[in-house]
Design a binder for these strands. Sequence first.
DNA 1: TTGATTGCAAATAATTTGCAGAGAG
DNA 2: CTCTCTGCAAATTATTTGCAATCAA
Lengths: 128, 128
Amino acid sequence: MSSARATRQREVIAQVIEQAEGPLGVPEIHGRARQILPRLGIATVYRTLKLLTEQRQIHAVAVDGESLYEKTGQGHHHHFSCERCSRVFTLHVCPVDLPGGTVFAGGFLVRSHEVTLYGLCPTCAPQA
Amino acid sequence: MSSARATRQREVIAQVIEQAEGPLGVPEIHGRARQILPRLGIATVYRTLKLLTEQRQIHAVAVDGESLYEKTGQGHHHHFSCERCSRVFTLHVCPVDLPGGTVFAGGFLVRSHEVTLYGLCPTCAPQA
DNA sequence: TTGATTGCAAATAATTTGCAGAGAG
DNA sequence: CTCTCTGCAAATTATTTGCAATCAA
């Protein structure tokens, strides 16, 4: 049976995602990792994202129709997408009041939820 | 200057989206429209979605990393994605308490929000 | 040494564009 | 009649896969 090996590429890609201020897209991950490993191929990024996802080290979240990756184990949280600079941040607040097992009109049984807040980030807000 | 013409294709595509139970993806829109116009090309679907979006007749929402289209003017609402059948529904409820202009810790100025609820739809829930 | 991993390039899948003919106004 | 719109196919763009060389264990 196969075993996953520890390689410099995987180490760097995982670290880029760990240290990010929010979930990152594939081009962003590739770009940041390349500052450390210039010859890193995009195929390796995709393959590593798939591997890390299977290992539950990271997972994908959908924001604005794009798949972004973030580390797991951050607890319940949501995302903030800046309308000016387009960066996405992780926010450890939950503005939703939904007891588990809530049933909505019509019979929709809610098991979990995802919230994306839109507006201006701390950097862009003062400039507005 | 150019003016948009009323064509059968545009009429059918718009109608498919208007009558849907929730936002639809491109393959779904193409499939439903083809039941009426079998020779409808996928390129026309993409071009029409772009046109209708510019006209503000419809708009895109991101659910599970995919762009889905729905008519505008439905008022404040959110979406429910069924974990079993994968269909997406429109729900006219808002479980979020966010007065406009709320500022979150760190200086995030919130202007709007999007919520996606996950669970079992009325059809799938009874079978669970 | 052994076999997993990588970079590159070719293969797919998704979306966009060019173009000649069809159709709206 | 004029000029937009459509279907088809070719062109992009995004993601995946094949393969020989490289590297971890």
